[in-house]
């Protein structure tokens, strides 16, 4: 009888735990997951100003500009269909360059500039963020080898 009780309590604890974890996970995912968008989707009105999101695109040739403070850069992210200005304060990652792929975490500002908190660049010659696989030829020269 006692042992049965114990096991019931343990089972109940496990069920409560699993249910609680499920609720916790689901609500956290709803609040914290960030949408991945391309410049064309942003231009199409998909992004809400101030909402955390992730932007993927190519850095347009000749678009990287440095602001007078020396640590803020501006560049244009493109997916071949639309262009979006991006602003980033910080040291860009090692592999960040014009005409190659990048992914930025950040949010849209009211003036239509994407403010990045963090920039990720492609990791090596053969690597590109998979989300960018469906971009048209010629958007950048660093297209993945098949």
């Amino acid at each position: 009888m006692k042992a049965k009780h114990q096991r019931l309590i343990l089972a109940a604890l496990a069920v409560v735990g699993v249910a609680g974890a499920g609720v916790l996970g689901a609500s956290a995912l709803r609040d914290e997951a960030a949408y991945f968008r391309t410049p064309a989707e942003v231009k199409g009105g998909a992004a809400v100003t101030g909402e955390a999101m992730r932007l993927g695109g190519m850095v347009q040739a000749g678009s990287i500009k440095r602001l007078p403070d020396g640590v803020t850069i501006r560049f244009v992210a493109t997916d071949g269909k639309a262009d979006l200005p991006v602003e980033f304060t910080g040291i860009v990652p090692d592999l960040f360059a014009e005409e190659s792929g990048m992914v930025a975490d950040g949010r849209m500002r009211a003036d239509g500039v994407f403010v990045a908190d963090r920039i990720l660049a492609k990791h090596d010659e053969r690597y590109m963020p998979p989300q960018m696989g469906d971009m048209p030829e010629g958007a950048g020269k660093a297209a993945p080898k098949a």
């Binding site: 974890a21 916790l24 996970g25 956290a28 995912l29 609040d31 914290e32 997951a33 960030a34 949408y35 991945f36 968008r37 955390a52 992730r54 975490d105 989300q131």
Partner: peptide, 14 residues
């Protein structure tokens, strides 16, 4: 059909 990324805020919270 939705592209989503899950980052540190989610993991820290859960």
């Amino acid at each position: 059909g939705e592209k989503i990324s899950v980052g540190p805020p989610y993991y820290n919270r859960v």
